Amino acid sequence: MDDIVKAALKKWPNVPACRGWLALDARGEWYMRDDRIQAAGSFPAVKGSRITHDKLREFIHRNYEADEAGQWYFQNGPQRVYVELEATPWVWRVRYRGAGQAPEVVSHTGRSAGDVQASLVDEAGRLYLVTELGLGIVHPQDMHDAAEAIEGGLWVPEAVRSDDLPARHGYVRSPQAAHMRA
């Protein structure tokens, strides 16, 4: 977390959280969802405006975390901005390095995933990796590299239902919906 964010938290410790305004799709793209967009429908059916400003994306990446309930958020100064997730908290970029070598796996935020502990494939054929960092979906553009790891026997995917992943791996896809139910 950025030092400026830590200082803001100390100065203003009780700022209410924001829900529904920020979303992460299954390709690692961030979206702003204002009141009008939220009224038009839930994420990902209605995505909102894609965030393209590099410095803002980097700021979000450095300050992206989960709370104790498995709700992911971006700490924006003193305010938590909870994130609506299309799939998982992490989107993996995979680079195959050659036969017998473990592929490089990096998150959409640029963080190393660490070792791959398990691979999962859902009913739609989407590939997920369980890593030291957590659960994430493999970016669709990296499926060729991921397939090389599978064909080389480095990963052996287990079948899973996508709807079972949040409970199984301790994350919340929609903090806004969870907050409204509470």
Score class of each variant (00 low, 15 high):
V138G: 10
A149C: 10
F74P: 00
E132M: 09
E68N: 08
R36W: 07
T109D: 06
R80I: 00
V83N: 05
Q79K: 09
V138D: 05
L9Y: 01
K6C: 11
G20L: 09
A26Q: 07
D2K: 09
A178G: 01
K6Q: 15
G110A: 10
E104I: 08
V91N: 07
I137T: 04
E132I: 01
Y73H: 07
E151D: 10
V138F: 11
W12V: 03
A40G: 12
W30E: 08
D54A: 15
H179G: 09
G153Q: 08
G77V: 03
I60R: 05
R161V: 04
R36F: 12
G110P: 06
D145Q: 06
A113H: 02
P78G: 05
D54L: 14
A66K: 04
R97P: 00
P140C: 05
R27V: 03
P78I: 02
I60C: 13
S49C: 06
H61A: 15
A118P: 02
I4W: 14
H53E: 15
P16W: 05
K6N: 13
T109E: 14
Q117G: 05
I150K: 08
A182T: 06
M180N: 05
Y31K: 03
R161Y: 11
Q38T: 08
H139F: 06
A167Y: 01
D122R: 02
V172Y: 03
N76S: 13
S49T: 10
K10I: 10
G152T: 00
Y96L: 02
E104L: 14
Q75R: 12
L120R: 01
L127H: 07
W92L: 09
K11T: 14
A45N: 09
A149E: 02
K11H: 12
V105M: 07
D34Q: 09
H108F: 10
L22S: 08
H179V: 02
F43V: 03
G152L: 03
Q117F: 04
C18T: 06
R168Q: 15
Y128G: 04
L129F: 12
P13N: 03
G125M: 08
D67V: 01
E158C: 10
N14H: 13
F59M: 11
A182S: 14
H53I: 06
S112K: 07
G77F: 04
K6L: 15
R57D: 05
D2M: 09
K11Q: 15
S119H: 06
L133I: 12
I37R: 09
R95Y: 01
W12G: 00
R181S: 11
L154G: 13
P89T: 04
L154F: 14
S107W: 01
A182R: 13
P166M: 09
L22H: 05
R27M: 11
R19G: 00
P89E: 09
P166T: 03
Y73S: 03
A40M: 14
Q38F: 10
P13C: 03
E123P: 03
Y82C: 02
P175F: 07
A178Y: 02
F43I: 04
Q176Y: 11
A45D: 13
N76V: 00
P140A: 10
A124M: 04
A149V: 02
Q176F: 12
M32Q: 12
I37P: 02
V94N: 09
P166L: 07
A147R: 08
W21A: 15
E151G: 14
R33H: 06
Y128L: 13
D142I: 02
D3W: 04
R80S: 00
N14I: 01
